[in-house]
Amino acid sequence: MAILLLAEHDNRTLSDQTARALTAAREIGSEIHVLVAGKDANAAAGEAAKLAGVSKVLLADSDALANNLAEPLAALIVSIAGGYDTIIAAATASAKNVMPRVAALLDVAQVSEIIAVVSPDTFKRPIYAGNAIQTVQTTDAKKVITVRAAAFQPSDAGGSVAIEAVQAAADPGLSSFVKDAISSSDRPELTSAKIVISGGRALGSSEKFKEVILPVAEKLGAAVGASRAAVDAGYAPNDWQVGQTGKVVAPQLYIACGISGAIQHLAGMKDSKFIVAINKDADAPIFQVADYGLVADLFDVLPEFEKAL
């Protein structure tokens, strides 16, 4: 039977994480339908229709679906779930919100944040903040799965399939959207950037964070991340947090500045291709995973680094 892949998008563009979750879906089966649920999301649906390996795109359009509210989105997915034996999505904030609701409504377990497909019903997933990897086999007739996108390469564009409209389910009317405070910047998205530069508590203030980290990010065309300590201290916004409970990234180059390397943080970046650590403390655990370590004060080194680029 077919696979339903829930797309991550902002109505205008499709997230790179969907192309990565598609790669996981293609390891499970071959008939893949991508569900784009939103409001005026034709552009995002158009992008989904071009991805290699997609059989069909389903576009659901309604006001209730405009802001990823869990209840109407779950109702929609459940209303079309009969035709699928696997329902899958990249483990974004939106999918982490809605997919367990879908699983419970279908009375099946969810397999969260898989990092590998062993067979169509068996998957690997990290537990204990990535300190152990569990292989689990589902016994339910329907599988609900979220995918740690950083663990899979994105599927390329290459196809061109039909976009079919589907009816939104009735909105249960339990919640309503008030407002978004979404940070906008010209920098690439954290989860899909080729280079990420992250700052830790050593930055000392949000002003210093901006002053020292951002110029290097601009020069490199890098996304900016932060440790949990830096976010908790208010030096960086929550959506910059890299780690087990924040974003999991796997860029070509990850530059950790003034980050000690708590297990929690390592879980979010240790699959990066190359890791650079800059820290005053030569014993910081971050050096145990870094390809290139520089024991130095980041306030001295980063401006020099920026100038030399």
């Binding site: 802001n67 904030a93 919640s175 959207f177 008030v178 978004d180 405070a181 940070s183 929550n238 959506d239």
Partner: peptide, 13 residues
């Protein structure tokens, strides 16, 4: 709520 791009405020019954 803490979401991928920042913060989202919703009202629930």
């Amino acid at each position: 709520r803490e979401v991928d791009g920042g913060l989202q405020t919703i009202e629930v019954k």
